[in-house]
Design a protein around this nucleic acid. Sequence first.
DNA 1: CTCTAATCGGAGTCACGGCTCCGTATTCTA
DNA 2: TAGAATACGGAGCCGTGACTCCGATTAGAG
Lengths: 182, 182
Amino acid sequence: MTPRADATRNRARVLDSAHAVFAEHGLGASTEQIARHAGVGVGTVFRHFPTKEALLSAVLAARLDALADEAETLAAQGESGDGLYRLMRSAVAASSLKTAFAEALQRAGVDVSDAVAPARGRLTNTVGTLLDQAQRAGTARTDIEVRQVFALLVAATHAVTYLDDDPLRERTLDLILSALRP
Amino acid sequence: MTPRADATRNRARVLDSAHAVFAEHGLGASTEQIARHAGVGVGTVFRHFPTKEALLSAVLAARLDALADEAETLAAQGESGDGLYRLMRSAVAASSLKTAFAEALQRAGVDVSDAVAPARGRLTNTVGTLLDQAQRAGTARTDIEVRQVFALLVAATHAVTYLDDDPLRERTLDLILSALRP
DNA sequence: CTCTAATCGGAGTCACGGCTCCGTATTCTA
DNA sequence: TAGAATACGGAGCCGTGACTCCGATTAGAG
């Protein structure tokens, strides 16, 4: 049975708002804050996502999906070898405004959150491809593996969040990514 | 007036326990947990540290002090140029068991926590010296500055915490630190 | 040893956040 | 357009955690 129109609309609204609010206030943000931001009541939030953790999972899954899409596009684009770097920059940029995502990404490794697993798998695969391409093109060291790329992603995001000076942020991101180069 | 013996003893006990508990359970750990770990009542905790934030500040200040001590020892040890790397390894190791420290370090940059300021200043100075030494010895790039070293420290700590495989952790730490080399 | 002032312990208060419940409003089918 | 099914809102319940208060317990001076 397809759900009612307002139901789907509100579900999407809540998901968006949750992303925005978590990003701005960290994962400690209250459900009521999210509900207010979405212009709905708390009841609605909990009907769609029975638990705060479920909501977080859903937000995270959506983010990972988007990233995975982007990764696949880049991977399909060819063997130039800079796809990996483009992806990492974009991933860091997407979450540098938002402390929360890095936190979440980190926890996602621990949580066996079923909702997140598929997106995560897809992303892992594609990043593997990008890494291969980069290694074949000679733009990445050959002695590194995918898990290290993710670790660097977490690292870079935190470093960038830590700094407050924009040009310095840029230089530091370059610095960290340069660790991957041969 | 010098405080009573049990007062000083308990203060130290609480500080140690707070460090241990925050390290194991993150900054969300409850005051009661800390009190129990220290074998005192919550009242005692709040008498010595009127606020949870004050307690956190105190723990952080103690950690930074210890780090600053170590940094000064290394700086005095000479111009070999590897002091910087030794310090960073040790700093990461000290906090890799403990997610919390990195979190705290990060916040310390934002909070104008008076309790932390002196230790932080001391540490910044000495790391500056270590960086100078490394640059003169040719073991560090000359186009980086102290703030970037701290950013890398935060980054490395998070990367190491993120990974769960010990040898991989080691290799990844090497990878990140290699970004500093010429 | 005694007495007092400093210190302690932990039950109790208050605020806040996750989650439930149900009367009301909205969608949609016939 | 009427009626049933579905979804909504938000007051309120409950548990948790920061912080207070005061009677019980020491430390340590004399």
